[in-house]
Simulated scan of single mutants.
Amino acid sequence: MNAIIWPESYLPGTTDNYCSNEVIIPNLKTTEVWPFLNNTNAWPQYYENASEIIFYDNTGPELRIGARFCFITFGFLVESEVVEYVPPVDGHPARVAWHGWVEGDDNQRLDVHHAWLIEDLPGNRVRVLTQETQIGKPAKELASTKPNPMINAHQDWLDGLVAAAQEKTKTK
């Protein structure tokens, strides 16, 4: 199975917070999941922790390399730029990642790298992996909170993404 490609400054184990969520689902394909992640208009329909998504260059709602957008999550206005973008191609995983940041002083500043990998597996299965690393005081606070809100919220995002794709495949 493939892995997330990490910028050196966001390598898990070197940041203030890290979370990883993964599912492997039968009877679903990467090409069926991808549209619900790639089209940011779909996010609030299946993930309640993402709202007010705005693209600065008016090219959204679909992601692309270099796209600049912001959205509200965990009560933060997160500025984001897509730094990796590989749509699904037969035999290769789909990938998307963005650098996100929250402006502010040392108590409020947050830097993140959020990455997704979607790949077809043998046996008519799909694997969806999302991982995020964070740097900053808010990240330290999130990391010490039990249960971990990042892991729980990202699992909701992952479950919602898969459910949306499964629902769409039923209506085909």
Rank of each mutant, 00 (worst) to 15 (best):
R68G: 00
P87H: 15
H92M: 13
L77G: 08
L63P: 00
G75W: 14
T73A: 14
F76S: 01
P87N: 13
T59F: 07
V83R: 00
G66M: 08
P61I: 02
G60D: 07
G91S: 11
E84C: 10
E84H: 00
G75Y: 12
V89G: 05
C70P: 00
P93A: 13
E84S: 04
I72L: 10
V82G: 05
E81K: 14
H92W: 09
D57C: 08
V82K: 00
I72M: 08
F76I: 06
G66C: 05
V82T: 12
D57V: 06
I65Y: 14
T73P: 06
V82D: 01
Y85I: 00
D90F: 15
P87M: 11
V83M: 12
V83Y: 01
F71Q: 06
E79N: 12
E84I: 06
R68Q: 13
I72C: 07
V89L: 11
D90Y: 14
G91R: 10
L77W: 09
F69C: 04
G66H: 05
R68P: 01
C70R: 07
L63D: 04
I72F: 04
D90P: 08
H92I: 01
E84P: 03
E79K: 08
D57K: 10
D57R: 10
V82H: 01
D90M: 13
T59H: 12
T59Y: 08
F74R: 01
P88H: 07
H92F: 06
F69Q: 03
G60R: 05
F76C: 09
D90A: 15
T59P: 07
P61H: 01
Y85M: 08
I65T: 06
E81I: 13
F76W: 12
I65M: 13
H92T: 07
L77R: 14
I65N: 13
F69M: 08
V89Y: 01
S80Y: 01
I72W: 02
P87T: 15
V82F: 05
Y85D: 05
P88I: 12
I72S: 09
G60I: 04
H92Q: 15
I65Q: 15
E62I: 07
F69I: 03
G66Y: 11
V89F: 04
A67V: 04
V82N: 04
F74N: 06
I65A: 14
P93T: 10
R68D: 09
V86L: 12
E84V: 05
R68C: 09
G75L: 14
G75A: 13
L77F: 10
V83C: 10
P93N: 14
G91E: 03
F69G: 01
D90Q: 14
D57T: 12
G60F: 03
E79L: 00
F74Q: 02
L77H: 14
P93Y: 07
E84Y: 05
Y85H: 13
P93I: 11
F76L: 14
P61V: 03
F69V: 02
P61K: 03
L77N: 11
